[in-house]
Design a protein around this nucleic acid. Structure first.
Lengths: 241, 241, 241, 241
DNA sequence: AATGAATGAGAATTCATTCAT
DNA sequence: TATGAATGAATTCTCATTCAT
């Protein structure tokens, strides 16, 4: 945690430091972030940095927490049925995705930071930072699936844990797609400030992904003849091993 | 590319260097790999390194290519219908996963390298290295989906590009899950040399993931009343926008 | 010297600062002691420190003086014949040693501080601090020797100054031995609170050292044939020069 | 240990580095020595230092070993009876002292380094460095005392370990006394290059110290009435406890 | 071609002391 | 007088790359 000194700072200065850190961690992963950059951007002396934070990791943890909190509170605000009644699994998921997308558009740096964090190769660091975050995305998905099953919206044969895992992958894939789009837009000066949310293509992509999630890849049309994917039967084919 | 000098080296020495590099990049991501480590492991003088490679990136690209080639040729060898006739999408995908898993078990270093590469945060580097790989996993998946649609095995409504993208991440995540299992096993001395392939639990997990992929999450039972997830209708709820 | 501000401080606060300083200098030598530690332990703000003391050296000198004074007054209290009549050199020395030992046991921090000071490598600092101590141990020894000679207890041939020097070394050796014992005890949790004073081994060691001091190393038994150590004669051996 | 690279260096450069280090460690204790100083004195780049030594401690250990070796070999050369026959305890001790003194005069830096090392407050460091030195001064003294007892030159009642410990401190103190003299001379430009060894006053001081060591302080003359210092009897006086 | 020493910019971190409130 | 934030010089150590032999 930052020191009390940091929290005693005048708002303007504290904001300057936080913004510098956000920029740094959005651009570079933890191991490439540098104190030198940050103090330069924030316009504070070297010594001050260490009066505010034990080290770079201290600041990093603070920033990751901040990022998580901001996203959670954004989602809670924009997806009210998230924890309430009248829950509809796919509608909620769609709302979550759209809110997430909007959040990403409004806070591209936070998105980038979250993404860098997910890719963080240093497991120890990741765990240390994660350990202090109470709620992980996957857990939320698992709980959503359970609720969906209870309400008869999700196939009750499905293991909620497994489905939570699957959903985690699914949404990571989604956000990677949007990051890519955003970067393409950002890199292209001719497109200026076009919101992905106003782009029907984006929503179409989202709905296709939702459809994929709901009904799978397999063709149900009787004409094609649905594939038999009973796992037990598959194992009977030994020629591949 | 490595210099001609490198390829002129006696096989034994070249292998020593390659193995050292494999070990280094399996352990550390590109930015943490160090020339110092590699030359020490390979037992070659510092100057020689720069006579074989322009710099570390040069070697990295070479190693990534090598890794990709080895995996591709492994898959081609072990999943014959991959490019042949009698194609069955889900069977092929399952075979690919299992072959990938076996490859990972047999070449844990190559797996780790591939995984580190996927997580590489330096986009410029990633693109540069990627650019030189002719065939990306995602492209293969896209083509598989196209074939599946042609043969009536995959829902023709689905955009092959979108599905290919999703499958790429889905399978990477799957292999990450197995790496984690492998590491857990490796860390536990009481379990010795048990192959994941012989563990029915592992295959069950794989088959469940394939099932989700094929049929989705939604409950089809008429009792529960299938959720109406027509995308067009969803958009009718304006309160979130 | 500390500022008047310091002496005006409420007793409780002044004590807190002194105790923090005692702890710091008992643990670390002057060059490793840090203002940061001390203000943290004492719970005073950084700025206050510099309002009480010019710098760390100022505090250090104060603490060293304090240490010396406390020891002197302890000895005066517990070794009454120290300055009085009925003086017996060896008995007094023994009493001094035992009182010193007891003082050390009762004030391990002061002992450690004194010891750190003796080892202080910065000569300039040492002299500066020493210069302000009125009475050095060696002077006391010299005066004791003079008295011993007057009373026929010490060999009158001996130069009191030289003997004082010798006694200084002798007692340093003794105290080093006891510090070592104390540290051994402190490091060994199974021995708890056993006083060195109650350990007959310790007293035996002291008495052997006193014997060494009184009679020297040389063997007086006629059988061994006492060594001729007349200095004048030694110089006649030129081969070493 | 320094790296092979260091030993491969041209003699001239290696000597420059060693001399710079000798100067540094003679002037400052380990914790105040600085790589910056040393590389400046030696005229080598920062990076080179770390190609020769792991860190400052590595160099320090090397220098301490060097110092010890040089002194030991000097003493072996100049005090032949040190390990040979015809051993005479006090004569040998005197020769050792004089040789040590001469060594100190010829190598004031080595003397200062040894002295700084003896005062080193960091016990862990001291042990680590010491651990690699085979023969400690104190052990030598203990063995000398044992020999002296065997040959009837030393009072057999004396515990050799105790006496060895005492002799270690005694001789260190002696050399410290002479360092002080040397420094006084060095600081006084009017006295130029007068060897302490040619100063009869110095030898007189040494011989007096040896005399005290051999015969103790006590007055043996029957007139004075020798003090009764039987330890058992001393304890009968309870008033001090 | 092989070798391995030379280089110096750049990273993090510490700390005594000053100064504005 | 009390306070605690500001400061920046000084420290160690790393490492990719070059260059002379």
């Amino acid at each position: 945690m930052p020191t009390q000194t940091f929290f005693n700072l005048p708002e303007e200065k504290r904001t300057r430091i936080i913004n510098a850190a956000l920029k740094e961690f959005a651009t570079l992963c933890f191991d490439h972030a540098s104190v030198a950059h940050i103090i330069k951007m924030a316009g504070i002396p070297r010594g001050s940095f260490y009066q505010y934070f034990n080290d770079l990791k201290d600041l990093y943890k603070f920033i990751i927490d901040l990022t998580g909190e901001r996203k959670i509170s954004y989602l809670k605000e924009h997806v009210p049925q998230f924890e309430g009644k009248g829950f509809d699994f796919f509608q909620t998921l769609r709302d979550l995705c759209i809110a997430g997308l909007r959040f990403a558009e409004e806070n591209p740096e936070l998105l980038a930071i979250g993404n860098n964090f997910l890719k963080e190769p240093n497991k120890a660091l990741k765990d240390e930072v994660m350990g202090e975050q109470l709620l992980k995305a996957q857990d939320i998905y698992t709980r959503m699936v359970q609720k969906g099953i209870e309400l008869g919206q999700i196939n009750p044969q499905i293991d909620p844990l497994l489905a939570g895992h699957f959903l985690g992958i699914w949404s990571a894939s989604l956000s990677e797609y949007y990051i890519f789009q955003l970067q393409t837009i950002a890199a292209n000066p001719s497109i200026d400030e076009i919101s992905l949310l106003k782009d029907p293509q984006s929503l179409k992509h989202l709905d296709q992904m939702l459809d994929l999630l709901a009904h799978g890849l397999a063709n149900k049309s009787p004409l094609g003849g649905e594939h038999d994917d009973d796992p037990a039967r598959r194992q009977s084919n030994p020629k591949n091993f």
